[in-house]
Design a protein around this nucleic acid. Structure first.
Lengths: 190, 190, 190, 190
DNA sequence: GATGAATGAGTGTTCATTCAT
DNA sequence: CATGAATGAACACTCATTCAT
């Protein structure tokens, strides 16, 4: 008996991202993705129940990679601002490096399939962020607001800025990035 | 492809938004849209060259409605903050009222078809905003940054917050909206 | 606008019967049926909602043709035996002439799709037979039994005998047919 | 294709019957049957050359079980009627007890694969019945007719009556069964 | 101008079967 | 001997678009 191949699994994830970005959500077909991954369409179905499952898994895979990196180097004994800044730059670096992941994610998150994603799993991944925010609010360092607003004003802009399709003028110079961070911090600081 | 009947034209736009939001970009078909609009698929083709054209037109239609409303009541003799605040609230009210338009727009803008949109036309629609920003920068009221960054930190958050799929917790109370505006202003003010 | 074509509809029925008999229920595909009927598989779907609908319609079509012929020449003023004999011979002639219809029907009726056939419609078609039976029972000419038993002992044998796959030896000579009728009658007469 | 494990072999037969009855011939797949039998699809192929072979074997298996039981208790020294009645009731009891076997058999026998069944083997199984008939004809107890007619008027009705899909009204009470037997006997007796 | 019928090309998915382990 | 992974070929069905009316 042959055994399932982790490389194939990963190839499928990468192929999904690539094809969705190249052709768009609407024109991405299972067979195109399979071809891109170098497997037969039928094989794809031994790794994923159906197309939806493939898309959702790919999305979660990205989120996991993102959160794995986002909270690297965070130390609760550091000042809030330091931790916050570190997370923000971690994210920024990741989104810039993997613009393809986020073009995929945006297309995915705006489609109705997104409703089927297990939100609890997402929430769990971002828990460290939640704790940080709450601590900042308690300490009266940042404004008292809910997590959605933080996302909207701090992290979504990162995604937008690093999307070359949407922000054709924005260039990732140190200066621009520092200014962006300042804007994010100004938005939430008390 | 002659536009004979404006009512049918508008019905097609509305149907497109409705179907895309209900089924997602991937599952939206010309015949479903035609049926939703109450016309034959063949008729649709007398109004639009093809499916792409229909989607792009629908997107531009939304952007036009948006910008028509955004700059209502703006008077260059008012203080910058007043004008800025008015635009922001105009937009907020519009996005909340027409969440369907923006779910469509987001799906559209993240797909490769978006590249075929005539950016100059979009830029022209948002020109008044550009002028306002430039004036604010000149007067040292707001930070010196390009338009992309304004969009990212001021207007995108509006779209995100008013998207019920993404922000399940955000509630549109006066207080929350005021706070959101404050965050937007804090982000850009010098 | 083109109009739906009754000839195509009929061609689809005939093709369905032919293909199912040639390949068997299990190997009959929509595309084979469409090709046999000389239309595109896509066209088939303007005439039938799906494969199931095509099969059920074909079955009902056969039953309708059968019952249209079965009760030809029946006159309530004739003796029961005469009417009964006429119906039996009508059926026999029809089944022998259209063995393909009944090979299809048997495959169909033994598959689970059969459960979805509207039994009331079938019952309605065979109502004249029901009345005849009831009259015969009342007049103490035939045994008192339910319709299922009549079917099983009188009409099913007709189908079996005229199925060349099952009855390789039975030859349709006048003598054999007369003897078969006698057996059917002996089975039910009091 | 070696028969190692008789239990697995029998499990495959039962699984085949079960799956074919549940899903119909058209939707029965090798892997579903394998799963139902609790083995891998690959294993199935060590017991049967291919799908066809599995189906044919299953059919023959049923026929063998049927004929093993049908002629139980037959004694050539008993009167013909006694033997005939005993066989008929043996069959009736078996078909009622194993309706699933006969739903399978009917689907099978009406499909073109049936043509590949070795008829000689079937004939051999039913030889005792043939001898009985011939004796009855010689003795002028039953009508002079070929075996197909006997099958059609005596044994097929049994299958039909005990098929709950086809005979929804027929109830297996002693009285109904006796009457059915009488009909069968009346059909063939001189 | 408006329509529903028509279709080649494509969709997502399952199939019977083989193969490496 | 037994297995689940692998696959080319086929499946039922829908697509965007055209065409005859």
């Amino acid at each position: 008996m042959r055994t399932k191949d982790d490389e194939k699994q990963e190839a499928l994830f990468e192929a999904t991202v690539k094809v969705v970005n190249r052709m768009g959500f609407a024109s991405s077909s299972v067979s195109k993705i399979a071809k891109e991954a170098g497997v037969s369409p039928a094989t794809l179905y031994t790794y994923h129940k159906n197309k939806e499952d493939l898309l959702i898994s790919t999305y979660l895979n990205i989120k996991r990679k993102l959160t794995d990196i986002a909270f690297e180097g965070i130390d609760d004994s550091n000042p809030l601002w330091d931790n916050f800044r570190r997370i923000w730059f971690n994210l920024f670096r990741f989104t810039v490096k993997h613009t393809d992941y986020f073009q995929f994610s945006e297309q995915f998150a705006n489609s109705p399939i997104y409703d089927q994603v297990n939100q609890k799993e997402i929430d769990r991944m971002f828990r460290p962020m939640g704790r940080l925010i709450q601590y900042g609010i308690q300490q009266k360092i940042i404004k008292d607001m809910d997590v959605d607003m933080i996302s909207a004003f701090v992290f979504y802009p990162v995604i937008i800025l690093s999307n070359p399709r949407l922000c054709k003028n924005f260039s990732v110079t140190d200066e621009q990035v520092e200014q962006s961070f300042k804007m994010a911090w100004d938005a939430i600081k008390l």
